[in-house]
Design a protein around this nucleic acid. Sequence first.
DNA 1: ACTTCGTCGGACACTCTGTCCGACAATCAG
DNA 2: CTGATTGTCGGACAGAGTGTCCGACGAAGT
Lengths: 212, 212
Amino acid sequence: MPSITRRRSDAADRRGGVETQILDTVARLLAEGAGFTELGVQRIAAESGVARSTFYLYFADKTQLLLRLAASMSQTSFGITAAWRPEAGVEALTATFAEVIATYRANAALLTAVQETSAYDPAVRDFWNGRLEAFRDNTRQVIAAEQQAGRTPADIDPAVATHLMIDGGDRFLLRHVTTDDGSGDAAAARELAATWWYGIFRRPATDERRRR
Amino acid sequence: MPSITRRRSDAADRRGGVETQILDTVARLLAEGAGFTELGVQRIAAESGVARSTFYLYFADKTQLLLRLAASMSQTSFGITAAWRPEAGVEALTATFAEVIATYRANAALLTAVQETSAYDPAVRDFWNGRLEAFRDNTRQVIAAEQQAGRTPADIDPAVATHLMIDGGDRFLLRHVTTDDGSGDAAAARELAATWWYGIFRRPATDERRRR
DNA sequence: ACTTCGTCGGACACTCTGTCCGACAATCAG
DNA sequence: CTGATTGTCGGACAGAGTGTCCGACGAAGT
């Protein structure tokens, strides 16, 4: 890793070295099941092989470390869901959620840490909420468009339905990947897709319901 | 150490005294928007008008205090949802959720504290999970019975659908009552009821879907 | 008057946090 | 080669908070 012909990049190299080292170490500790709250700076520094004071040269505090870790998390989930269009139907939605579950599973430890910390740290809460807001925006627009096209009942409140899907779905998915060994992934994706599809996107219209 | 020849009025004395005083004070502080994690024993004791050392005569730690507070929370939510039967239909389900929202709103501060603490404290997490398990049991049974009767598709996994409804619904409801001023309660109840009803209980059967 | 009880208030040991600073080796400039 | 710069170390430090312990003290009950 150290370069022979060192230029100004020397500082950048080293800086990136220690920082990456710390980030990787924490990611590993979280993956091993450590609770982020119980994980002290002392422990992080020791496991990273640096002095505790050095930790503070790179991160103002543990929260900043978590935010940087979370920011590095692949943002593929959004791309996956944004790619789905109602015209593709419920089978495509199932496939979409199967992919989302895979990314949740890949980042389960980090997601758990974020959820744990966002419960009492406003900075982390705002960060995660902002991340979810991208999903909400997209979902609201899709619902509104379907309502325009007459395929989704007009009496559905897009904002409320969106919160149910995104916030409720986020909780469901996180719980699922932290308690299920993977054998239930397909069922979870199917259930999630079918419930949103028949419960919201293709919910029977009010007049259709009356006829039943 | 515990006293030996103490009268039975001991509990009654405490109930009218220091213990209730502390519990009430913390409930008030939480209602005023204090975060439970940031709430120190020092502050709790001072606001309760007792010495800090006296706090430890009644509670082993802050977690025990929260668990006792949570245990005192009215358990009406379960009674409300358990009373609903599929035969009553989606309108009755909407009314049920409206009542549930009212109880969530009445206990919003405490629920937030529980959720916040359960993120990193296993004892609190287990407590709340156990509380939700009663709802899950009931829901699983209702789904299974509806499947037996042929009114709910047999290919739905009752356990997965239940987790989506209870865990996802819990998150949705808590978020709702902590961000909405109450004007959206009716819409939230309607959306929740309709989505579970048409997305799960009355989801079109597979052969019916094919015909579409 | 004497005991018992609950509470008080403070001391204590401990842990963790974030800051600071002198030491020190590696590296770079002239 | 010399001197300055850089990044890290290791430890000291103040502050906050936790849970334990104990002597003091007033308000009872007998």
